[in-house]
Amino acid sequence: MSDLSKVPQFNRLFRLQFEPAQDSFVLLFPEGMVKLNPSAGAILEQVDGDSSVAGIINKLQSKFPEAGDLTPDVCDFLITAEEKKWIYYA
C-alpha cells in the first residue's frame, strides 16, 4: 500500500474487542473469533473510521517511541487485514 492518506474501516462483519480473560484483542464475527497478537491488536485498535493510515502510524509511533519506524510493519499488516476482509477502504 503506497497511499497513506486512505482511511481504513472495519467490515461490519467484524467487531474488535479487548478480552481480559485472554489478555488480548479479539475480532468477533458470526459464530467465530480471531485472537490477535499484541501488535495486530494495537494497530486495529486505532482503526476508527476517521484516522488515515498515516494518522494511525503517527499514533502508534508516539505510543511506542522506542519501536523505530513502524510504517512498513503497519502497512504490511493492513494489507493482510484487507485480504482477510477485516477492513476495507471507503
Binding site: 474487542q17 478480552e19 480473560a21 485472554q22 479479539v26 468477533l28 459464530e31 467465530g32 473469533m33
Partner: peptide
C-alpha cells in the same frame, strides 16, 4: 465472567 465471548 469466565471468558465466554460467543453467545448463540
Amino acid at each position: 465472567k469466565m471468558g465466554a465471548v460467543q453467545l448463540g
